[in-house]
């Protein structure tokens, strides 16, 4: 029987147990709240470390809500996480972590006293950047466990998650390095004349300006990442596209596949547009007195 609501429900949540759906809904709702809080932090010029703690805290919270098991929440199997929620959460779990990782790696690349470390890091991320995401996903989920200890079981979801983080990180590093170049050498000189160097200089002078300069490029990379999460279907994770195919393979829905594609397309458009709008807000709140 055709039932639009249950179809949408399936597209969004897949086989996630009914009684636990509130947890996923809550986790998804946290994402825009986090976005708003970030704008708030930038507007009030809170320290970057506060934003970092907030981000890591919310990441843990959403992880625990959606796939955590423990005394309080019923344990959910990782594989049960699917549908549009999987896309959104995968994007949400990769974007901040990849950005933080990239910021850290840029510090090493910019300030490294040992050239070899910078060289190895550069080579590693260059490799990741040069390979198609699909290849990386395959490699990390299928081949890597074969090469190393097969007992070391990481689930496909975890493998996909880590791959996405490193993939996004590889791009973000380049964006950050470009933004670093945009900082005038006068500022490097005056920092030196004021005796500010090393991590303190990176933290207080370079990084805030790098983040600001790189916002437009960062946001479009993030949007790319949101869409790239649909590639996890290829390693057998049931994301929204996967669920869509399952859905239209059923008799009741098979004549409506164009409509469902449109619905899903609309949802992605909405998500990406909101992300772009969020980026605009961030740019506006961090324009430092320029009119």
């Amino acid at each position: 029987m055709f039932d639009l609501l249950s179809a949408l429900d399936f597209l969004s949540f897949g086989f996630y147990p009914d009684i636990d759906k509130w947890r996923l809904v809550l986790a998804i709702v946290i994402i825009p709240m986090h976005a708003v809080l970030t704008v708030f932090c930038v507007k009030n010029r809170y320290r970057l470390s506060y934003c970092l703690v907030l981000t890591l805290g919310l990441q843990m919270l959403t992880l625990w809500l959606s796939i955590g098991d423990g005394a309080i929440l019923r344990s959910v199997k990782l594989d049960e996480l699917s549908g549009l929620c999987l896309n959104l959460l995968l994007a949400y779990w990769s974007i901040p972590l990849a950005t933080i990782l990239a910021a850290g790696i840029c510090f090493i690349l910019i300030n490294a006293s040992s050239k070899s470390l910078a060289y190895i890091l550069g080579l590693f991320f260059d490799l990741i950047r040069s390979l198609p995401l699909v290849t990386l996903l395959f490699f990390n989920t299928l081949i890597l466990p074969m090469l190393f200890n097969p007992k070391l079981i990481i689930t496909r979801l975890e493998a996909a998650w880590i791959t996405l983080i490193f993939f996004l990180c590889a791009y973000t590093i380049q964006i950050f390095l470009g933004a670093y170049e945009a900082i005038s050498y006068h500022q490097h000189e005056s920092a030196k004349a004021l005796g500010i160097s090393g991590w303190k200089k990176y933290r207080h002078i370079d990084l805030p300006q790098m983040l600001k300069h790189s916002l437009p490029a960062l946001i479009s990379t993030y949007i790319g990442m949101i869409k790239d999460t649909t590639l996890v279907m290829i390693i057998g994770l049931a994301d929204s596209l996967g669920n869509l195919q399952l859905l239209i393979s059923r008799n009741a829905y098979k004549h409506y596949y164009i409509e469902f594609f449109f619905i899903l397309g609309f949802l992605f458009w909405l998500t990406c547009t909101l992300c772009g709008w969020w980026g605009k807000q961030l740019e506006r709140t961090s324009n430092y007195g320029k009119t």
Partner: peptide, 12 residues
């Protein structure tokens, strides 16, 4: 202390 021709304040 040093003062530069082009001020070199930190814009952020």
């Amino acid at each position: 202390g040093m003062v530069f021709q082009d001020y070199a304040l930190f814009p952020h």
